[in-house]
């Protein structure tokens, strides 16, 4: 089983995800270039990393979503396989229509990088079942456009379908309903602004992030059996 990490021009958290998957979680990550049109054989999950795809001089993720690989990612998600987008990856997945809502500029208008306490709002997803519902976890954020927005009708749906995976305890960026991470309706696509891959080793200040990857790995392992 392979964990496909999509690399766009300007991705810069690609190696961070790679190292966590390989060195901490002991699974097999593989980079996939944005110009590819298919995912590697045996792809069990797709991870869209953080960074600044194409520099993000336009709206974040607005260009990356047109990359050749995105059709394959969409087909993979439509088939019910797990896809996770972190930070810029979240922005790209919303631009691509794989997740509801949009990410706007932070309410402070400034880039913000700091650890954030989050509440695990839904601990039953493919990505969060190793957490306890309502648990506090500490993941860093690092973004200029992480202000999640959706309209009231969408928000009502998100709540009703339990699509809100993580919420901020002290909303740093103006996100609607303190949303830090959401899934699609089916629950197999997760987007989140905070960085679990930066919180997966004690030496870096915390390892809460490991359980997100452990959840994902357990989910795909179970699905394969």
């Amino acid at each position: 089983m392979k964990y496909a990490i999509i690399r766009f021009p300007g991705s810069n958290c690609d190696w961070d995800l790679f190292y966590v998957l390989r060195d901490v979680m002991a699974v097999t990550p593989e980079f996939v270039d944005y110009r590819e049109t298919t995912l590697p054989d045996e792809t069990a999950a797709v991870l869209v990393p953080g960074g600044f795809s194409y520099g993000d001089y336009l709206r974040s993720g607005a260009i990356a979503r047109f990359s050749p690989i995105m059709a394959a990612v969409k087909a993979f998600a439509d088939a019910g396989h797990p896809v996770i987008g972190i930070c810029n990856g979240f922005q790209i997945l919303t631009e691509a229509g794989l997740l509801p809502g949009a990410l706007r500029k932070n309410s402070s208008l400034d880039f913000i990088c700091k650890p954030q306490p989050l509440t695990v709002t839904n601990a039953t997803t493919l990505f969060t079942h190793e957490f306890d519902a309502g648990e506090t976890v500490m993941f860093p954020i690092a973004h200029g456009e992480g202000n999640y927005y959706c309209d009231d009708a969408t928000l009502a749906q998100l709540k009703q379908n339990h699509q809100i995976a993580f919420t901020y305890q002290n909303n740093p960026n103006g996100s609607t309903a303190d949303i830090a991470g959401v899934t699609n309706e089916r629950g197999n696509v997760l987007g989140m602004m905070p960085h679990p891959e930066r919180a997966s080793e004690a030496i870096l200040g915390g390892d809460d992030g490991q359980r997100l990857f452990a959840s994902l790995i357990a989910s795909v392992t179970a699905a394969a059996q």
Partner: peptide
């Protein structure tokens, strides 16, 4: 310094 990404590259 919170306006700088201080953690990328982990």
């Amino acid at each position: 310094y919170e306006r700088y990404d201080s953690q990328v590259q982990t």
